[in-house]
Write a protein that binds this DNA or RNA. Structure first.
Lengths: 188, 188
DNA sequence: CACATATGATACACTATGTCTCATCTAAGT
DNA sequence: ACTTAGATGAGACATAGTGTATCATATGTG
């Protein structure tokens, strides 16, 4: 729908849902509260989303638009990787981390949520894998490097610290992680 | 309470809650359904846990009793680490993974859940860190190895694949992960 | 301006929550 | 065996949220 009225109410409600999610978690996102918080009639909330999961999915999709800029090509591979990981860490530090926490639990039992989550989260790793694959082609990384696993090994610790430990993802940590993980695979 | 009647109903209800969580996620664990599923009066469920989070917390505590056996001392460090990681992966593959998924979202907004989750999840990494620290002391790992980060780098990818990608944690993957991550830090 | 569509307001039946009361059952001590 | 404290069962009650439906009103578009 391109109807501006629809877009307006939709955005109003989605903003309210975002506040509710951020403040009280997924359970706080109810049709009633979204209606109250956004000043929209309850029936309208149902017209846009029939279930709570649909609201959260939409929220997730909107949050997925955090675009990680591909790094400039004239830096050394380690700097480019570090740049991507720092942008990734920044996304996890922001509201994206909270949304992600909420979604992981839902995705376990709702395939639709899982697919949406996959689309959101595969974006960072994909850039990283491409970067690493290019590094192998260019001879910056040793031949035979398992690019997929290397990407897991760079990203996994970030998720671990953010989602499970609730630790800050400082740039220092990210830099050391990139450095120590990449080092054995760098040529020269 | 040591009252056997209390223990009996408590266990009945927890088992029911476990089934509900496993089948339908955290949202499916309601006082009413736990009562129905366990054949206990609804009021009794409230008497044991006043909120849903309390039920899930108890479930989490019970699940936390998965004890990872410390590996036998006469293996090479890489084999011992691989053993710990495989036990860890097995725990994530089982119901523990589902419970964990559910808890991550709750822990984001409920400090009590977070603390319980921390107690449950720190167990594996602690064994691993101790193993790695011993490796440094024994000279099997190079001096100056960042043991905490090395543990993150070994565990992070497992969580990433299980919680976000819903991938199987095969022993092959775990072995390769341990091998490629440890290799640069091994002396010999 | 007229029409289509979205929204607001309200009603209804239903599920779940959280608290309360009182009768009944169970466990433990005498 | 008797008694008593504590736990449970059964049910009532007010409240929050769900999901659907209806109809008047407001908004956007041709």
């Amino acid at each position: 729908m391109t109807n501006p009225q629809v877009q307006r109410t939709h955005e109003l409600m989605l903003n309210a849902a975002g506040s509710l999610l951020s403040a009280g978690g997924p359970e706080a996102v109810t049709h009633l509260r979204v209606a109250e918080e956004s000043g929209v009639a309850r029936a309208t909330v149902y017209r846009h989303w029939s279930t709570r999961a649909d609201i959260l999915l939409d929220l997730l999709r909107r949050g997925a638009n955090l675009s990680l800029d591909p790094p400039s090509g004239d830096l050394a591979l380690e700097e480019r990787v570090t740049g991507v990981l720092e942008a990734f860490a920044a996304a996890l530090r922001s509201e994206g981390g909270r949304t992600l926490s909420a979604m992981i639990g839902l995705a376990e039992w709702d395939e639709e949520v899982f697919n949406a989550l996959e689309r959101m989260t595969e974006f960072g790793p994909r850039i990283l894998r491409r970067l690493l694959a290019a590094g192998v082609d260019d001879g910056e990384l040793v031949q035979g490097t398992d690019v997929d696993m290397l990407a897991d090994r760079l990203i996994g610790p970030l998720y671990l610290r953010r989602l499970l430990y609730h630790d800050d993802l400082t740039d220092g940590y990210v830099g050391r992680l990139a450095s120590v993980t990449l080092a054995p695979h760098l040529v020269s």
